[in-house]
């Protein structure tokens, strides 16, 4: 089937709309109502990019991910992934993508990790040499050596997630879709998953679409964040840009060995908290640059220490959602 428009990018989405019909009341004569999950979104992801896809629960992220995976049909709009329309070329499409749903398992509980991978080799018709190469590479990168012979039901969550990621990559997909891959993982496992995805992108040019509620995943991995809310794209930019436009303020904390003095602060800086031995000042670096503010307070008597910090990514996102009533 001829693609409806030429797409040099790995993923191209145009005016994607999806509405669900739900029955209300549950009775025979229950009225039906339309819920708009995606209200005409457009974006594209070039080959080899890691794009973060974030938004509050119910924003439409999962719907978009399912459409891109080929398991959900949109109401209208155009999508191309690897030059294929996911829902019209399902079999050809799914052969070239890898998908991990963090809350579901694609491995077989009754089998060992190694047996599961061998099963996927047969499902995706991976040639034996390529399979051996990929298996060795993934076992090494994801530290699966010790668990290859363990049955999946015995794995810890962290081990299972590493095995899941290996399972999604055994057939060398061009595109990897990760839906909350770090959910429930401990810190070392999260770091291992992030490091692996980063390398995958760098070394093999795999395009990665990542959804997560862990903003540190986004900070560590995504060159770009697409924020979705109420079925629309609220922002699509590098993360730094989002920070600048949403919550550019910085925080200056001052410690004193006596009672903090009363301060006359320059425009753009305000005192936001006062404790027996410390002061917190919030400032906008566009109005008063950090060096100027530090120079302003640096000569205060009794000053022991000072620190400048930025709002955490969680605070930024919370503010962003609040600003957009998402």
């Amino acid at each position: 089937m001829q693609p409806p428009f030429p797409a040099p990018d790995a993923i191209t989405v145009k005016n994607l709309r999806k509405t669900y019909t739900v029955r209300e009341g549950g009775s025979w004569r229950g009225k039906t109502r339309e819920i708009v999950a995606l209200d005409g979104i457009s974006f594209s992801v070039p080959k080899g990019q890691i794009a973060g896809f974030i938004g509050p629960n119910g924003a439409g992220k999962s719907t978009a991910i399912k459409i891109l995976s080929g398991i959900l049909r949109p109401t209208s709009g155009e999508v191309q992934v690897n030059g294929l329309v996911p829902w019209t070329n399902r079999v050809a499409h799914v052969a070239r993508i890898g998908v991990v749903f963090g809350q579901r398992t694609q491995l077989w509980w009754d089998l060992s990790v190694g047996e599961g991978l061998a099963l996927l080799r047969d499902i995706y018709s991976v040639e034996p040499e390529r399979f051996a190469r990929n298996r060795a590479r993934l076992a090494d990168a994801l530290d699966l050596g010790g668990i290859m012979d363990q049955s999946v039901r015995q794995l810890s969550l962290g081990q299972r997630m590493r095995a899941e990621i290996a399972a999604s990559l055994i057939h060398d997909p061009d595109i990897l879709i990760l839906d909350e891959p770090t959910i429930g993982l401990d810190a070392p496992s999260k770091l291992a998953v992030r490091a692996f995805v980063h390398e995958l992108c760098q070394d093999r040019g795999t395009t990665v679409l990542l959804t997560t509620h862990d903003m540190h995943d986004i900070e560590a991995l995504a060159e770009r964040v697409i924020v979705i809310g109420h079925g629309r794209i609220l922002a699509d930019s590098p993360f730094e840009d989002l920070r600048m436009t949403t919550l550019s303020e910085r925080i200056l904390e001052l410690d004193f060995h006596g009672t903090p003095p009363e301060l006359a602060l320059p425009a753009g800086a305000v005192e936001t908290a006062r404790a027996p031995h410390s002061l917190t000042i919030t400032f906008d670096p566009r109005q008063i640059p950090a060096p100027a503010l530090v120079a302003h307070v640096g000569h205060l008597s009794g000053l022991d220490d000072l620190r400048i910090s930025r709002p955490s990514i969680d605070e930024i996102i919370t503010r962003f959602y609040a600003d957009h009533a998402a």
């Binding site: 995976s69 080929g70 079999v91 799914v94 998908v99 749903f101 809350q103 579901r104 398992t105 499902i123």
Partner: peptide, 14 residues
């Protein structure tokens, strides 16, 4: 029950 049935739709098979 677990929702893993979506993975069956993700396999390149009949």
């Amino acid at each position: 029950k677990t929702g893993a049935i979506v993975y069956d739709l993700l396999r390149p098979v009949d």
